[in-house]
Design a protein around this nucleic acid. Structure first.
Lengths: 302, 302
DNA sequence: AAATTAAATAGACTGTATCTATGACTGAAA
DNA sequence: TTTCAGTCATAGATACAGTCTATTTAATTT
């Protein structure tokens, strides 16, 4: 098991190019640092440095590990400093599912933003589970997220949508009415890492013995779409996602759907906040014809 | 200093709701786990659990810490598993600055994607420094990023752009020809956490004794824009960023600029890859009239 | 070949995670 | 009301592993 001190030592050597200097930097002796690096290398099963008398050099694997080690330390620092900041009371704290298109969010939020400017005092964006956790803990007043049957919270449905394929409009498959997944074998693919049906999608392809080639993985769906439009690869995502240069095509057997709406729990709400929330939802629903099903057509939406 | 074992214990208690059960799960005795949690709480300076005889409950701070602890462990797992996978040679590995608009990326990449489908075999997206590091380490062949004077790499300029204000088109300030920063005092603001001039922008406001109110912080610029359009708050960003419902307005004294282009180093390139790269750059430049200066006008771009 | 520098190894020491044993507290059942 | 069961906290001893000092090994320079 990798330990924090080992990562500290490793990064000190990376910075200084020398075990001796690194040891000074982290306030231990050189043999301590040497032993720590040795343990880290043993744990990872690979050599991280090529040693010479004058200086040490990162191996190829060592180089790959640097960013990873930095990421761990970065998260650790964030974790520690997050405990030093104090929360102050908020008026309306809104949680938004990160896999909802920005355009849809704008449509949904804009009516309220126009009439009640400034009352959304905190926004949290995350995965479905993160949002639910925060609501359970009273840290979000209202969430725009996926509706699931049997939820204990209050739910107001806004729209339903299917998941389908997204390919570049100039792609040979873009004109098909429907695509057989086997046509995507070895095609470059872009993975939306926060997709709610990511494992189902993976299984969908695996079950058909289709292995797309991973080119790019991102948590930012608009990025994924831009790469699709650029011809880098295909992806799958909910139908409301549209972009210039991207054609949406159904895929045979790919029948996943989701329902998007507001979720709130009244357990943690003051009367004032309950009022505000009700105003928010009513105003938003009254502007929803724009989001109705009939506006969504499958195919090239540009 | 927080240690990994403390995080392991903490997350086990979160999962089980009980020190005793958590201790079983992590294969230590309950007093060991109790002491570990106590050390963690001492280090963080806050209580993470409310203890009762039946079960333990997360405090508000404990709840905030859960996601942080998970992020650390997640990165640690990634770091370890990254050493177990073997790199395979890639054809063209492209690094892209994360603060370039998706639309610009699509315009830049699409000509190549049309004619050379499938040859972009790996995409990395990150901050400027991350991209430069990866290029130095030979892990990126070509980068689309900010050009800085005095760089050691080869650089090809694509366009220059200024930074300016983005407000909702229905905002009272949206019709101004230019905005004085003092008009933004106490206005809700959205922070783009990966902005290259984030500290300069912060200092810009501080120097004028202007304190906008932070509502939302995100690394996703398209999200920031959607929130601006929705009226949640204002932000600053490069001029190429546009969105429906967002008006771009210059701000007096806010004179930051950036130059975007391709960067590559020939030190790590095979002849074949050098060829491919040259084709990429030539093809892209030949389609660049779309990106020329004259197409950028300041004001409402919808 | 000798001197210098820096990483590796060996063995003793020190700090702390861990164990066993016990105490304190709470809630449920008799 | 008392007893019992369950759970977290505390105390003291033990075991383990990071750390130290001393030395060896390896590479480079003079």
């Amino acid at each position: 098991m990798t330990e924090i001190y080992q990562l500290r030592y490793f990064l000190a050597v990376v910075e200084t190019g020398s075990f001796t200097k690194a040891a000074e930097r982290v306030y231990v002796t050189q043999p301590t640092l040497s032993a720590g690096i040795k343990k880290l290398e043993a744990n990872l099963g690979t050599r991280l440095f090529d040693r010479s008398a004058k200086r040490v050099f990162l191996t190829e694997n060592g180089t790959r590990f640097v960013e990873r080690a930095k990421a761990v330390m970065h998260q650790l620092n964030l974790a520690e400093s997050a405990m030093k900041n104090e929360d102050t009371p908020k008026l309306l704290r809104l949680g938004i599912l990160m896999t909802i298109p920005s355009q849809s969010i704008r449509q949904i939020l804009q009516p309220f933003g126009r009439q009640e400017a400034g009352l959304i005092t905190e926004l949290f964006e995350g995965t479905e589970q993160e949002i639910l956790n925060r609501m359970d803990e009273g840290r979000i007043d209202l969430a725009l997220t996926i509706l699931r049957p049997g939820t204990k919270n209050n739910a107001i449905s806004l729209y339903r949508e299917a998941y389908s394929l997204a390919v570049a409009s100039h792609h040979p498959l873009a004109n098909a009415k429907s695509i057989d997944p086997t046509e995507l074998a070895n095609e470059p693919t872009i993975v939306r890492s926060r997709c709610e049906v990511l494992s189902e999608t993976s299984r969908f392809f695996t079950d058909r013995n289709v292995r797309p080639r991973l080119v790019y993985r991102t948590a930012q769906d608009e990025r994924a779409l831009a790469m699709v439009a650029a011809g880098v690869g295909f992806t799958t995502l909910p139908d409301h996602y549209r972009a210039e240069g991207v054609t949406r095509v159904p895929m045979k057997g790919y029948d996943f759907e989701r329902e998007i709406g507001f979720v709130f729990s009244e357990h943690h709400l003051s009367d004032e906040k309950s009022d505000l929330l009700k105003r928010f939802v009513d105003l938003t629903k009254s502007s929803l014809p724009d989001m109705a099903y009939e506006k969504i057509t499958i195919g090239n939406l540009t």
